[in-house]
Design a binder for these strands. Structure first.
Lengths: 235, 235
DNA sequence: CCAAAAGTGTTCAACATACACCCATGA
DNA sequence: TCATGGGTGTATGTTGAACACTTTTGG
């Protein structure tokens, strides 16, 4: 078959901004590059698109390689395409942010990559334009999470309301009234209270909740506002 | 300089979903392909990314070629990247939706392309996956416009409140209460009433308004809701 | 004078916020 | 028994939705 003539072909990479939450803080999973250029420097996990895969498939592959996880929540953010963003060769990067349950990850860590979790606030300098990608991903996550219940993707199967609230508070760098917060969250009917409590962080213990998977997936990107004044965060 | 070895390079295209509004209905600017494959079939205007340009720059170039317009409102939507989406050769497409003032366009039409405006509701079948791109763009536009005042990009410099309301009503395929609508819109302070009236569509005439450019651009993506129950439209 | 569209105000309900006290428990 | 974090209810203000009549003017 004929090809389009006179056009330049370029490398296309997917880079993953992998968010986790340890119960206290947001974290980012980074790898130390084992190859040139900028060997040893920290970077996002990424990879070049292969002939038989789509962008989304590529991103899932890259994630699986690093974390062992499949079917992860992924969202594409706008491409990074400055002609000289990669000094080696022109590469157009399509970043995805990923939300994973940090605990699921730990069990499956492959030693093929030198990967490490960093507190979002203590992130090292990254190669190329990866710092900007992280910034962009944070903005997008803030935006999306203000309107849709996606942050559950960061939590383990069983979690408590105080933990959920801390999650939101950390993302928006503020605090919320716990009475209003729990009322809003519970009023969605998405959460099912369990019998048992988490006694780790208080003597009284906090009830565990699980997602009502049915409701959650049926109306996956439901429009819900768990935080007050979302317009403050919607840039 | 060394290149990354063993990787496949691909064509990257930008395709533009160009929206216009004629005062009554949404329209889409399409071109009839002058080259194979699928010569004569309708398609979105697009082009391959050139060595010295970014995706956004490429999209602006493509738009300028077709419409003569520069600095158009553009927004990237997620890439289309199925390996066989283009039968000639693997091409990853990054679509952009564009909002233009249809009247500005008409003046500058280049005859280099066979381009035509179609009512959104009477759109022909398009090549490849362009139909899906249009669907995706409509969804994104609905989402974005429900929360941010971007639809002004579709209107001429002077417009009336009834026209603005029709614009919103057509996008959301519903009707709004004009008292509530005008109150909301005017309360933003974004609009400045002019002395003169548009007498085209009524005997009484409707006041023209202009955007307060200062306020508009200062707070370009302000969070505003001109439509009731936006959650209905936020998929 | 009449048809057709433009313009305008009020009432009510729902929602979001602010706010404070009691509970359970382990040490 | 006390210190710590968990859990809950109410009152108030704000916001958004519903709703109908008067105005203007060209024909």
């Amino acid at each position: 078959m004929m090809k389009y003539s006179g056009q330049t072909r370029v490398l296309v990479a997917v880079d993953c901004i992998i968010f986790g939450f340890d119960g206290e803080n947001f974290k980012l999973l980074l790898i130390q590059r084992g190859f040139a250029p900028q060997r040893q420097k920290w970077s996002l996990m990424g990879g070049f698109i292969q002939p038989a895969e789509s962008l989304e498939t590529g991103a899932q592959r890259v994630l699986k390689q690093l974390t062992g996880l499949e079917g992860v929540y992924l969202e594409q953010i706008p491409g990074f395409s400055e002609p000289i963003r990669d000094p080696v060769e022109r590469t157009i990067a399509v970043p995805y942010f990923a939300l994973i349950d940090i605990h699921k990850y730990e069990a499956q860590l492959s030693s093929e990559y030198h990967a490490e979790w960093f507190l979002l606030s203590e992130m090292p300098d990254l190669i190329f334009d990866h710092n900007q990608m992280v910034e962009m991903a944070k903005m997008r996550l803030r935006y999306k999470a203000a309107l849709h219940p996606i942050l559950f993707e960061l939590l383990p199967e069983k979690f408590t309301l105080p933990k959920l609230q801390i999650l939101y508070e950390k993302l928006y760098e503020t605090t919320f009234d716990k009475r209003n917060f729990s009322r809003k969250v519970l009023s969605t009917g998405l959460l099912v209270r369990q019998e048992d409590k988490d006694k780790e962080s208080s003597r009284k213990g906090a009830f565990y909740y699980k997602l009502d998977k049915e409701k959650y997936y049926d109306n996956f990107e439901a429009f819900l506002k768990f935080i007050p004044n979302p317009e403050k965060f919607l840039v």
